[in-house]
């Protein structure tokens, strides 16, 4: 029974990916390009050499953070759609510290990371408090706060930390930038993201608090009746998921972007949601899914240069994967499907 369930969790996304790629190929063919060529350049661009692998991992890093943010919140039944806003707040906080603090280098990096996480956590806590004490719909609140965070970032790069005439902030000083990861384009933010995923995995599945948090997410009433402090877990899930995103924002700024600018982090929040859902809210699977989609994006640039197929094809493929995966997950749960499957299995035996 259980094995069967896990099988579906892997097979459904894999099938969805295959179908989505097939549709992607059809679109590419319809645009007059050779799908095989396009796919070859896609792969080459993302994993073809060390440089490209580094770019892929670098692009994956922020996505891993927002994916983990979504995974954690949804495990507790909290639909935090504010990963993007929390990510941005983390970056804003880090940007201030990195450019204004009297010290640079490692201490500044650590402070940026911690303060970024705290900023993201506090930003998410606004929605958490409104949810827990006012019973408000966290989805709408977190999305609204995304817009507010994006606009606030706009104030920062057009006014408060503006770098001369260009609407962007001054850059993070060299000493406070993150070191490269094994000489790749990716920075040490990548291993930090992976470690964060492992820690989350351990917490959710190997600690009592993680167990209780999942129970709250699956059945709030039963959790309450069985003596769990539901409000505390709900608030915690907001704050921790926000902190993960905030940490991601801080590290993205210090490692890759180096300054705040229009379009920073755009779409990362919803991407994280999509990837978390494809990964069935499993933190480790989430890391893999995030790398996969980052590869798709990085590779699509090469594909565009070589074949003229626009990069947004990769967005379509990603969107199709989520559309098919979620529908597929629902389908395998339908009693009709289960019966059909059981009948087939019986016939074969």
């Amino acid at each position: 029974m259980k094995r069967n369930g896990i099988g579906a969790l892997v097979i459904v996304p894999l099938l969805s990916i295959i179908i989505s790629f097939l549709i992607g190929c059809m679109i590419i063919a319809a645009l007059g390009a050779n799908p095989a060529d396009a796919m070859r350049y896609l792969l080459k661009g993302s994993f073809g050499n060390m440089r490209n692998i580094g770019t892929t991992l670098s692009r994956a890093t922020p996505l891993i953070f927002t994916t983990l943010c979504a995974c954690f919140a949804y495990r507790c039944g909290v639909f935090n759609l504010g990963g993007e806003g929390q990510f941005i707040i983390g970056a804003i906080v880090a940007c201030y510290i990195a450019t204004k603090a009297p010290f640079t280098g490692f201490p500044a990096i650590v402070l940026c990371a911690l303060a970024g996480a705290a900023g993201g956590g506090l930003w998410a806590a606004i929605a958490g408090v409104l949810k827990v004490w006012r019973g408000q719909n966290e989805m709408i609140i977190t999305i609204m706060l995304n817009y507010v965070a994006t606009l606030l970032m706009g104030v920062v790069y057009t006014n408060w930390l503006r770098d001369g005439s260009v609407p962007q902030t001054v850059a993070v000083p060299d000493e406070t930038q993150l070191a490269s990861f094994f000489g790749l384009r990716a920075t040490v933010a990548f291993p930090v993201a992976v470690i964060a995923g492992i820690v989350l995995f351990y917490f959710l599945f190997y600690t009592s608090s993680g167990f209780q948090l999942r129970a709250v997410g699956l059945n709030m009433t039963a959790a309450k009746v069985n003596g769990f402090n539901v409000k505390r877990y709900l608030l915690m899930s907001f704050i921790v998921s926000g902190a993960i995103a905030g940490l991601g924002g801080a590290l993205e700024l210090l490692g890759t972007q180096l300054r705040l600018i229009n379009g920073f982090a755009a779409g990362y929040g919803f991407d994280g949601v999509a990837m978390a859902l494809i990964a069935s809210l499993h933190p480790l699977a989430g890391i893999i899914v995030a790398i996969f989609f980052a590869a798709l994006r990085v590779g699509s640039t090469t594909m565009q240069t070589a074949t003229g197929v626009p990069t947004s094809v990769s967005d379509i493929i990603q969107a199709l994967v989520i559309v098919f995966t979620v529908a597929g997950m629902a389908m395998v749960k339908l009693p009709e499907f289960k019966n059909w499957f059981a009948r087939r299995a019986r016939k074969e035996v």
């Binding site: 999942r214 129970a215 699956l218 059945n219 009433t221 039963a222 959790a223 009746v225």
Partner: peptide, 9 residues
């Protein structure tokens, strides 16, 4: 509703 977490083992 209140006794079991149905999706847990």
């Amino acid at each position: 509703k209140a006794g079991l977490v149905g999706n847990m083992s």
